[in-house]
Simulated scan of single mutants.
Amino acid sequence: MKKQEPGGIVLILLRPFFLFKQKAPLVSYILGRLFTMAVMLFMLGLAVFGLMELAPGDIVDRIMLQQIFGENQIRPGQNQQIMDLEQLAARRAELGLDQPFYIQYFHWLSRVLRGDLGTSLISRAPVSFLLASRIFNSVLLNLLSLVLITFFSFVLGVYFSTKAGTKTDLAVTFFALVLHAFPGILMLILLQLFASVTGLFPVTAYPPFPFAEAPVRFTFSYLHHVFLPLLAAFLGGIGGTLRMIRATMLDQLGQPYITSLRARGIGEWRIYFNHAFRNTLNPYITGSANLLAGLFSGSLILEIIFAYPGMGRLMYEAVLQEDINLVLSNIMFVSFLVLLGMVLSDIILALVDPRIRYGKG
Rank of each mutant, 00 (worst) to 15 (best):
Q81R: 14
Y222T: 14
L34F: 12
T173Q: 10
L146M: 14
S288I: 05
V319D: 00
Y272K: 09
L328W: 00
L349C: 11
L292A: 07
L242A: 03
Q99P: 02
S299P: 06
L95Y: 04
A38F: 15
R357I: 11
A90Y: 12
L235E: 01
F69P: 13
K167V: 10
R114M: 09
F201W: 12
P202K: 07
I258C: 12
S133N: 11
F42L: 07
S110H: 14
A318I: 01
I266N: 11
L31H: 12
L326G: 00
S138N: 07
S120E: 12
M37E: 08
L228M: 07
A93E: 15
L200P: 04
V226T: 11
K3T: 09
F194D: 00
L291H: 01
G45D: 05
F17L: 07
H225F: 08
V319P: 02
L109Y: 05
L34E: 04
L130F: 02
G96W: 05
Q22C: 09
A132F: 03
I271K: 09
Q80I: 15
H107P: 12
R264N: 15
I185G: 02
S299F: 01
G32V: 13
M64K: 14
S120V: 05
V334R: 01
L292W: 04
L14E: 07
F201G: 11
Y257I: 14
S288H: 01
L170P: 09
I301T: 08
R134C: 02
M244G: 10
L230W: 11
L131I: 03
G240D: 13
L31D: 02
F209Q: 00
G57N: 13
S153N: 06
W269A: 14
M311N: 02
A263N: 05
L95P: 03
L54H: 06
A307L: 03
F201V: 03
G96R: 14
F18L: 03
T248K: 07
N279K: 08
S153P: 10
P210F: 09
